[in-house]
């Protein structure tokens, strides 16, 4: 913790950044914190309750000099922002934190979050300074990361349809999943366009199916598996199941995983003619 506070103080004193965005504790809850003077930096903390992906705040701090406290999974979203030319690397200072799992907010026994089970980014893959982990380092559970997806794929299609129909029925179109996603940064989202209206705004079977499919698709090859959408969803729709399916397909078809490097193209606007031709046999006439 001291390391983190010292780093924040140093950055603010030397005026390298205007704001440090990190975590603090208020009445037993961890909340995001904006720190803009060195004397406030003492409030910063990092522990396994720090689940939020703070990269989301870049939506409001795009052209400012900010420092962000980021875990491994969150730092991947910076790579995607850089790939898509949304920010300048020199504008942001990444205080990476080594992390071995955050807690699961939704389950009562407070075990580790599902996303941490197969995490490969305990140390962020992009950072300017890194804060070492104190205490025991628990490695992730090994094994097949997409087991649940593969099992679900094996079900007959009408069972799959019924499952999702029940899930999507719950959606109240609050768009919390979009607001919290660091990758959903468009000023005007497709759901808000009404000429033509591609996605029905009513929370009906049609409207909900359209919304959830399009949300998932727009994150194909961009979702960094931070798990925030599922956490934010007030009606507990398993959105990560859709995201993970796309992550799996991206890996299998195009050998691509999101947010690994800052200087590659995103898989969906890239192509490799020789490799992609393999898809044709199975899926294209």
């Amino acid at each position: 913790m001291k390391e983190l506070i010292d780093k924040a103080k140093e950055l603010l004193k030397e005026k390298k950044v205007e704001t440090v965005i990190g975590y603090r504790e208020i009445r037993g809850c961890v909340v995001p914190a904006y720190v803009d003077s060195p004397c406030d930096a003492d409030c910063l903390i990092f522990d396994k309750r720090c689940v939020y992906n703070l990269a989301n705040y870049l939506k409001w701090f795009k052209n400012k000099n900010v420092a962000l406290v980021l875990k491994g999974c969150d730092a991947k979203s910076i790579n995607v922002w850089l790939q898509e030319f949304q920010i300048k690397r020199e504008n942001i200072f990444i205080i990476g934190v080594e992390c071995y799992g955050v807690m699961n907010e939704k389950s009562a026994d407070a075990g580790l979050s599902d996303k941490c089970g197969h995490c490969e980014a305990h140390v962020p893959n992009i950072y300017d300074a890194v804060i070492k982990h104190q205490g025991d380092k628990k490695e992730s559970v090994q094994g097949e990361p997409f087991k649940d997806i593969q099992e679900f794929e094996k079900l007959p299609h009408d069972e799959r349809w019924d499952f999702w129909k029940k899930q999507f029925e719950k959606c109240i179109k609050c768009y919390a999943c979009r607001e919290i996603c660091p990758m959903c940064y468009c000023k005007e989202c497709i759901v808000e366009r009404n000429i033509p209206q591609w996605i029905m705004s009513s929370p009906s079977v049609k409207g909900n199916f359209e919304w959830n499919m399009v949300r998932a698709f727009h994150l194909a090859g961009r979702c960094v598996e931070c798990g925030e959408c599922e956490r934010a969803c007030p009606v507990n729709i398993p959105l990560m199941k859709l995201n993970k399916k796309l992550i799996k397909e991206m890996k299998e078809l195009f050998d691509y995983s999101a947010g690994q490097k800052e200087d590659v193209k995103s898989a969906i606007d890239d192509f490799y003619p020789e490799k992609d031709i393999k898809i044709d046999d199975k899926m294209i006439r």
Binding site: K165, E249, A267, D276
Partner: peptide, 28 residues
Amino acid sequence: MNARRRFVIFKKLLEFAGMEPERIQMSW
């Protein structure tokens, strides 16, 4: 080339959600 990638991913997603694969097809 871009269209192919987009199509394939979207088709996989629709299939996952329970849509029959025969309904969405692509050809050259």
